[in-house]
């Protein structure tokens, strides 16, 4: 049955409607998880608040395991879903750049909009910077366009690249994620003991 759009159950004209609904749901979850606060977010880097890691890992493993079951039940055809193409080096560099921006700004692009939505000044400033950055990137794109598209591995998954069956990847990832939940809880406790200037 699913995916609905490639199978023609929903026409592609609904793309934007669905995008808006998904965007609202995403924003709601970000805000409900407390991601509109820069302190909560950068807590990951200082070790006093791992809620970002927990929320995203939970979403990830639930979706991953859920998709495998849906595929098995025949509700969804996993081979038809879109897989983001992998550009190895550009993605690593991009990840580093984004991480640095994350620590300095206290938001990632998505959460900065939830911060704007609840009227946070730091969020507004961050968003202005975001658009400024997009502008510079677009203008300077010819300088590093070749690098941007280098190392194209195509739309590969870990299963394609290594040959490990998808269910084993999901299993391994779930174990790692769950271990991370409990590990970070202890880290959090120890760090928070020495903190006085921030109330939880």
């Amino acid at each position: 049955m699913c995916p609905l759009i490639p199978n023609g159950i929903i026409s592609s004209g609904w793309d934007f409607v669905i995008a808006i609904i998904l965007g609202m749901a995403f924003g709601f979850i970000l805000e409900a998880s407390g991601f509109s606060s820069a302190r909560n977010i950068v807590g990951v880097f200082y070790g006093y608040n791992f809620v970002v890691l927990r929320v995203f890992f939970t979403a990830l493993i639930v979706a991953m395991v859920g998709l495998l079951y849906f595929d098995y039940f025949g509700w969804l055809d996993l081979s038809k879903i879109f897989i983001l193409p992998t550009y190895l080096t550009p993605m690593i560099i991009g990840g580093v750049v984004m991480g640095v921006g994350f620590i300095m700004g206290g938001f990632c692009p998505g959460t900065s909009f939830t911060a704007v939505a609840i009227g946070k000044i730091d969020g507004i400033v961050f968003t202005i910077g975001l658009y400024f950055g997009i502008f510079i990137f677009s203008e300077a794109f010819p300088l590093f366009g070749d690098f941007y598209t280098s190392g194209d591995l195509g739309n590969v998954t870990i299963t394609d690249a290594t040959g490990i069956p998808a269910s084993w990847v999901a299993m391994g990832f779930t174990v790692v994620a769950l271990a991370a939940f409990w590990g970070t809880m202890f880290v959090e406790k120890r760090v928070r003991k020495n903190m006085t200037e921030y109330k939880f």
């Binding site: 493993i61 395991v65 495998l68 079951y69 595929d71 098995y72 069956p165 998808a166 269910s167 084993w168 999901a170 299993m171 779930t174 174990v175 769950l178």
Partner: peptide, 11 residues
């Protein structure tokens, strides 16, 4: 964990 182990059996 149970759900993840379950994927090994069904897929």
């Amino acid at each position: 964990l149970v759900l993840a182990i379950g994927t090994l059996l069904v897929n």
